[in-house]
Design a protein around this nucleic acid. Sequence first.
DNA 1: CACTTGACCTGTCCGC
DNA 2: TGCGGACAGGTCAAGT
Length: 289
Amino acid sequence: MPELPEVETVRRGLSKLIVGKTVISEAHDTQKGFPNAPADVAQFLIGASITNVRRRAKVLILDLSTEYSLLIHLKMTGQLVFVGETRFGAGHPNDSLINDLPDKSTRVTLTFSDTSKLFFNDQRKFGWVRMLPTEEISNTPFMQKVGPEPLAEDFSPQEFMQRFTRRSKTNIKAALLDQSVVAGVGNIYADESLWGAKIHPQRLVANVSEQEFTALYTELRAVMNLAIEKGGSSNDTYVNAEGKKGSYMDFARVFRREGLPCPRCATTIEKMRVAGRGTHICPFCQQLQ
DNA sequence: CACTTGACCTGTCCGC
DNA sequence: TGCGGACAGGTCAAGT
């Protein structure tokens, strides 16, 4: 999915687009194929207004005036696209992304009192939407176990390294993808940050040095900040709240660049399988040893 | 508890 | 131009 930078991009968009709006109707896909349909969502939504849009890890939190919150996970192919009443006229080039909504991947549609709409689309149906009393969010099992936000100002390199101790017997990529170690890292930014820190993804956590952890910390934050600045990565389905793609893939250094030269040393980038995921490395910069 | 693998879905691409 | 298999941004529930 959308990893931290993509979810953050959606959050910033929704913050500007839907805060203050009042929900007047909710519709969702009731097909058997959508097991995450929010059966109890409508009764807490109708008449409520959106007071805040937050993010924790890869979860979006829409706070409502009713003291309830709508939690949304986009997983691999989820989209949250806002369509305002008069945003684009017919024939506008940007209409191509949104003029067909709702479509067959639309799972939830919220309609606001000014007739604007928010669509939750999800081709692969892994995503979910849940309603919770706002004050209970922090007590959920997920929020109890999820690791710290890597971009938080008070998140230090020391804390970063210390979080990995519980996963010392696995490889660094599997640990980096573990949301209970650090929040928000997915396959793209794992590969990009490991390349930046010159660490082979199959290196055992126990064998990664303090200096290497410091480099990984710095690279991870840099790559995520750059990705947010570029509006995230769009390989295929990801779009922001306005239906637009992000451009980070134009800046990617190894991810999905197998066969191309490493931007640092020109060695041909290779693709392999690590932690069950497609993994991209420069075999010269990132050695197993 | 920590670790690995397969499952959840739909769509696309690649080789035969 | 059809068909099978692998693969795709993420977690989970199982298995060891």
